[in-house]
Structure formats: structure tokens, C-alpha cells
Amino acid sequence: MNTDIRRIVGLLGQIHILHRIYVHRALLATDIYFGQFPILEYVEKHDKCTQRELADTLQVSAPSIATSIKRMQKTGLLEKECDEKDLRCTRISITEKGRDQMLQCRRAFDAIDKQMFEGFSKEETAVFKEYLSRVISNLTTDEFKGKTMFSLIETMTNEKHVQRQGKEESI
């Protein structure tokens, strides 16, 4: 393999790790975990949405959303209430605490993004975006077409779980 390509892949990995460190630090100041932030943003914009809407929008499993919602209720970020017209359906709303912490994270994430692209012109940013889009396109097989970042993370997590189970069974 070309050493330049290997170096670029290494740099992309380093960017990913540095970004995750900064995001992790920003989240430490809140009761929010990494995967919960997009849930809070969605619920804030779509008050009284259902778990199914969330799962469909983020392209993750209903059990995954249900687990996150329960955790977020326990920490006071979200609340659930029965639908007035259909008692089998529950509606999800963001609490004031959830909104405050989501906005705190949004400001921190925007600052991280700004720092990351410090010194880049609009043209350079557009070209960089195009290059990254081409890399993603090259890696996106039919299996991954149209998937959100969150559903890709869930796929990766599920594959790790299956792999771990396989190792445990072979012992």
C-alpha cells in the first residue's frame, strides 16, 4: 500500500480520537452520554414525539431507544406521558434540565468544530468536505447506503457483541 495513503488513514484516526476526547470532556460536565445528545436535539425540536419516531429518524432499534429513554428519564433529561387519544402510546418531552444541558453541549461542540477548522477558508472547507464525501462514498457498500451515523454505530456495537459472544462460546 502507498505510504501516503497509510499516513492519511493514520491522520484520520488521530482526528477521530482527538475529536472524541474533546467531545467526551464536554459531556463530562453534563449528565449526557455520547449517544443521548442526538435524542435530546430531536426531542427538543419535535416535542411529544414517540419512541418509534426517534428510532426511525436515528435509524436505530426500538430497544436501543427504549433503553436510552429510560436512562434519560432517571437523570431528569426527558419525561414520558401517555398520549391523551391513545393510552397505548407514550409521548416524549425534554425537561428544562435536558434543554439546558443539551444547549451547553451544543455550544461546546460548536466550539470544538470551530477549533478544528481554525484557519481554513470557506473554499478549503468545501474542498475538504468533497474529499471526505468521496472517501465515504468509496466505503459505502449497499449494506451501508442511506444509514445514519447512529445506525452505523449501532451496527458496529452489535457486531462487537456478536463477536464477543462467539469468543465466549468457543472457550
Results as ranks from 00 to 15, higher is better:
Phe128Ile: 13
Ser137Asp: 08
Val127Gln: 06
Tyr22Glu: 15
Leu132Val: 15
Asp83Ala: 05
Ala108Val: 03
Val60Phe: 03
Thr140Gly: 03
Tyr131Ala: 10
Ile32Cys: 06
Cys105Trp: 01
Thr95Pro: 03
Tyr131Lys: 12
Phe144Val: 09
Gln115Ala: 07
Val9Pro: 14
Leu87Asp: 13
Leu54Phe: 10
Gln101Asp: 10
Tyr131Pro: 05
Met102Thr: 09
Ile65Glu: 06
Phe144Ile: 13
Ser121Gln: 04
Glu168Asp: 06
Phe120Trp: 00
Lys147Tyr: 08
Asp4Arg: 13
Glu123Thr: 13
Asp86Asn: 13
Ser121Cys: 04
Gly76Trp: 03
Ile65Arg: 02
Glu168Lys: 01
Asp47Gly: 09
Ala55Ser: 12
Phe34Arg: 01
Phe37Asn: 07
Arg6Ala: 15
Arg6Ser: 15
Ser68Ile: 01
Leu87Gly: 13
Ile94Leu: 07
Lys160Gly: 02
Gln101Glu: 15
Gly35Glu: 08
Gly13Tyr: 02
Ile32Trp: 00
Glu118Phe: 02
Gln51Gly: 12
Asn138Tyr: 08
Tyr33His: 05
Asp31Phe: 00
Gly10Asp: 15
Lys85Ser: 11
Gln104Phe: 08
Met116Ser: 09
Arg106Asn: 09
Lys129Cys: 10
Leu103Ala: 09
Met149Leu: 09
Gln165His: 05
Leu40Ile: 04
Ser121Val: 07
